[in-house]
Design a protein around this nucleic acid. Structure first.
Lengths: 217, 217, 217, 217
DNA sequence: GATGAATGAGTCTTCATTCAT
DNA sequence: TATGAATGAAGACTCATTCAT
């Protein structure tokens, strides 16, 4: 009883308190839960990237993150849901990366832009491989994936608009789709023997295209 | 008796007749066999493209080509062998297409080149999607796939050399790898809602890159 | 024409002629047929012995005797029938061998008898291995196999009666069953490293048993 | 509280208690697991004996022990592993039986020895039939089977040495091989119509052989 | 009759998912 | 709430047998 009183006092202040207080004892468990989820997603990233979507087994993903299979299913009720979780996390990270570029985009040259995009892709590389696998897996739920794509494309359009304010909205959308398709090949280039030289080429492709497109748009 | 006489007379004339006669009954079987193989490869192309390598089932591929599962296995003794058959056929078709472009390459502008490559990819589109799936599949036999890649890259280098005779061999090789990576995205563009506009963009990407690369090389 | 004449002349003598004449042109085919059957049975003996009943494939048996699979099925309409053919041939050869021993049995000592039986088993060894496989295969048609067993046991009883005329029929039957069971192990002994020594032991087993049994019966 | 006290008292005494408590929840699962394994081996014994190794299906073995096919594969990850499990269990039982005979062997007559061996084979009869099938199966892993044979032959040699201490080691080894070959026929005798009489004969075979061999050795 | 391509039932095995403990 | 044993649908592949040529 007395504990409840003090609780309501706290709540008034913190705002987020309402839920926190109700969960009192559960708070640490939640923290554990979030770590579990992170560990699961990390393991899933590895296993999907190594084996592909179908060949990856829920059992191995659980084992690699030292999680009981039953617990994995508590957090992600299906393999599809796990894939979606991965997609979601990737979407957030990619969005953050693109937003960061957008913030600096106004003052960048096309060549600098190309570099920034290349850097971003390489930073996300390990997750990209898993993502590719998931996007290619022709399973149902593709629509939700399409949603993710939409979000990222929006961010990319933001980058472009910041970079070349003169672009029409439609044109920015189109360019963002095109650029994202081009950027998809970057992790693959990284696996070629001539990776370094190919990066130079990609830099050329991107800046040449950006220059031409911005000028022509 | 008289029939026997005429028979020996015929044989004497044609020379090849002897074997023809012996194969008499086998000829149609072979023709049927070749059609079966083509039907199987077509069905496999569809199913692999739709489901991905692992999710594609031999049973469905057989059913889609109205073939008994046992017959599928007579022609392709394993799923891997079927994939290889597809790869092989694609290799031949792509090589032929690139060779045809090479023959005309000397007199083409960068823009015409871009168009020709786009057209080729679209002509191969249905097979391209399946090919992507097969090349990405994390299965053994990747070496033979690598071989296919080598062949196609060689043809593409031939196209570039014909187009811009001034290119060094190394440079032509590098450009061909880059171009093929870029071209891989074409069938994916075709699936976007804005396909037509994206094709224009790709034309721009390719010709801008070709122009810059040839000039810079 | 002239050949036909001489044929009918021959026929008059042989008694089997009636059918021979009707088959005129088929006669050589028949001979071919008999050779095919022999070749098939030989191949089957090998393959069954090597692989066991289930793992042996009709296709391999056909191939090993250079026979088309369709032809194999003309002679033996099922795998079971082929097994039966083998059993039958074995029965005839084993019967012949036992009859030959029976003819000399009266004047043989127990030790000589043991030797004769050992020799017979070794002479039939290659077929024995296949036979073992067929008798052990727990497939239907076991009844017909039981018939074969009956025949051979009868012959063995004949051998025993000739050897020891004082034996009652029942006792001879029992002893023959026992002896045949013991003899079954001989080909297995031949596969042990100590085959030679084990043969001596088996000689001991057989003659000790024969002596004791004949005396005690 | 009092229960807790008594618990800790118990623990103090048994020593093993600590782990017992930790395993509390797992203990019944393990017990169930062991019963499953036993049921599976029993079913496998039946099915292998009835159908032979190849013709026996994992599905039927699972069904006969009211086990889901997936569970069968949890305990025995392959058909071969299941066979090995059976071999192992047989090896232990046969060894135990032979050791028990060895313990009494010194004071036994040849006839008593024969009886003891007959009794042992009959006790193991149902497993013997399956074992025969497994030992004959032309599959890989034959080496491990050879190991089993070695073990059992060693035990049998122990029996003989205890029975007739005068035997040389080599002679004991040879006799044990011979005796085991003879004993293999016992379960087959049991399937004949005249089983009872044949057992008398086998008794005769064994004791006559033992007497002769021991005297002669 | 001979041939061998075609057929499809049936085998072993895997793995996403559930649920009793 | 966590655990991991249990489940069974589904997939790749084989082979006895048939039948059009």
């Amino acid at each position: 009883m007395s504990s409840q009183k003090s609780t309501s006092a706290d709540t008034a202040v913190t705002g987020a308190a309402a839920t926190d207080v109700l969960d009192a004892g559960r708070a640490p468990k939640r923290a554990r839960g979030r770590m579990r989820v992170a560990a699961l997603l990390d393991a899933a990233t590895l296993v999907f990237a190594e084996k592909g979507y179908d060949a990856a087994t829920m059992t191995e993903i659980a084992a690699r993150s030292s999680t009981a299979i039953g617990s994995l299913y508590r957090f992600f009720p299906s393999k599809e849901a796990l894939a979606e979780g991965l997609l979601h996390r990737y979407g957030e990270r990619a969005s953050a990366g693109l937003d960061a570029i957008a913030a600096r985009a106004h003052d960048m040259t096309a060549a600098q832009m190309a570099d920034a995009l290349l850097d971003l892709m390489m930073a996300l590389k390990s997750e990209r491989t898993a993502l590719k696998v998931l996007m290619d897996a022709r399973v149902d739920g593709a629509n939700r994936r399409r949603y993710l794509l939409g979000v990222i494309r929006g961010r990319m359009a933001g980058v472009l608009s910041a970079h070349a304010p003169g672009l029409s909205a439609d044109r920015a959308d189109l360019l963002s789709i095109m650029l994202l398709h081009l950027m998809k090949t970057i992790p693959e280039l990284a696996e070629e023997a001539e990776a370094a030289a190919l990066f130079q080429e990609m830099r050329l492709v991107l800046s040449a295209y950006l220059t031409a497109a911005v000028a022509g748009g």
